[in-house]
Design a protein around this nucleic acid. Structure first.
Length: 292
DNA sequence: GAAGCGTGGGT
DNA sequence: TACCCAAGCTT
C-alpha cells in the first residue's frame, strides 16, 4: 500500500489542476463555497461563479448580510439552486454560532445547512488539514476499481467502502493531499465511462484491471428523466425570477411553462422551498427574507 | 432507502 | 439523437 500512496501522490504533484480553491491564498470560506458549488456540478462551470461569489462576499458575514434571493440570483445556472439558499443559511449559522469563522471540525461542519458527510470531511481536510476519509464519487470509483475490483461503486456509500477509505488513510501530515490526489485521479484518469488506464499511476496494481476490467454486474443505474418534469418547470420559473430585480407578475411566469397544473404545482413548491417569495397582487420575486 | 432536486457538455 | 453524468444533501 505504501507504493500505491507514493504513486498517486507523485502523479498528483505532476498533474494536479491549478484551481483557485486550492491556491495558497485560499480561505476556509472559499473552500466551503467551492465544495457546495461542486456538488453534482463540473469544475469548468463552477470556476467563474466561484470567483464572483468570493469577490462579492469574501467572508461568511458578507453573504449573511445579503438577502437570500441575492445568493440565488448569483448562483446563476449552476443548478440545484437550493444549494445557494443553504449556503446563505450556512453563512448565517457561521456568524451566529461560530463568530463568523468557518468551523474547523467535521462535527461542527456537518451541523451546518447543506453540509453532509462528504462536504464536512472535505472542508475539514482541505481547509484545516484534518485526517478524515473523504468519500466522494471519484474516490468511491477509484477504490471500487483499485481495491474491490468492480467497475462501479455501490449506489450509496457502504460500511465496507468507509472501512477501505479508513484503512488507506495515511498519517495526518499526508492525509489531506492523499484525499485530494485520489479525487483528482478519479476526475482525470479513473473516469466513469472511459478510464485512461494507459496513463494511470496504479494500473499495475488495480484489482479491476488485473481481473480483466469486467463490466459492472449490479443493477443498471437509472437515469433521471428531464423533459416535461417538475424540475424542468421549476428551472424555467426560477430563471425568469433570477433575471428580474423587480417583482414579477404572475402572468409573466405563466409564459415560462405551458401546462398550468404543473406550473402551479412547481411554483407552489418553489415557494414552499423558500426559493420564491409571493407578494400581494399576484407578484413573485426571489426571497428577501429567510422563509419557514 | 428511495425519490426529488438543475444544468449543460460529452459521447 | 438520446442518453450519461459531474467534488451530494434532504426528506
Amino acid at each position: 500500500m505504501i507504493r500505491v500512496h507514493a504513486a498517486v501522490l507523485s502523479w498528483y504533484a505532476a498533474n494536479a489542476r491549478e484551481l483557485p480553491w486550492r491556491a495558497p491564498d485560499r480561505t476556509p470560506w472559499g473552500v466551503l463555497v467551492s465544495e457546495i458549488m461542486l456538488q453534482q456540478t463540473p469544475v469548468v462551470r463552477v470556476q467563474p461563479v466561484w470567483h464572483e461569489w468570493l469577490r462579492r462576499w469574501p467572508r461568511p458575514a458578507d453573504l449573511a448580510a445579503e438577502a437570500p434571493g441575492e445568493a440565488i440570483r448569483a448562483w446563476g445556472r449552476l443548478g440545484y439552486p437550493r444549494r445557494a439558499l443553504r449556503l446563505h443559511a450556512a453563512a448565517t449559522a457561521i456568524v451566529e454560532r461560530h463568530d463568523g469563522a468557518v468551523p474547523a471540525t467535521y462535527d461542527e461542519l456537518i451541523e451546518l445547512p447543506g453540509i453532509g458527510d462528504y462536504t464536512a470531511a472535505a472542508v475539514a481536510s482541505f481547509a484545516f488539514g484534518a485526517r478524515h476519509p473523504v468519500l466522494d464519487t471519484n474516490v468511491r470509483r477509484v477504490l471500487a476499481r483499485a481495491v474491490a475490483g468492480t467497475q462501479y461503486p455501490p449506489t450509496a456509500p457502504t460500511a465496507a467502502e468507509r472501512r477501505r477509505a479508513e484503512e488507506l488513510l495515511p498519517d495526518e501530515q499526508t492525509a489531506p493531499t492523499w484525499a485530494v490526489a485520489v479525487m483528482e485521479l478519479g476526475a482525470l484518469i479513473c473516469t466513469a465511462k472511459t478510464p485512461r488506464c494507459g496513463t494511470c499511476p496504479i494500473a499495475t496494481v488495480c484489482a479491476w484491471r488485473l481481473a480483466g476490467s469486467p463490466p459492472d454486474d449490479g443493477p443498471p443505474r437509472r437515469g433521471q428523466p428531464w423533459h416535461g418534469t417538475d424540475r424542468q418547470a421549476r428551472g424555467r420559473l426560477l430563471a425568469v425570477l433570477r433575471e428580474s430585480t423587480d417583482p414579477v407578475p404572475k402572468h409573466q411566469l405563466d409564459t415560462a411553462w405551458p401546462e398550468s397544473i404543473q406550473r402551479e404545482r412547481a411554483l407552489d413548491a418553489l415557494v414552499a422551498d423558500g426559493l420564491v417569495e409571493p407578494l400581494d397582487g399576484d407578484l413573485f420575486r426571489l426571497p428577501t427574507t429567510t422563509a419557514n
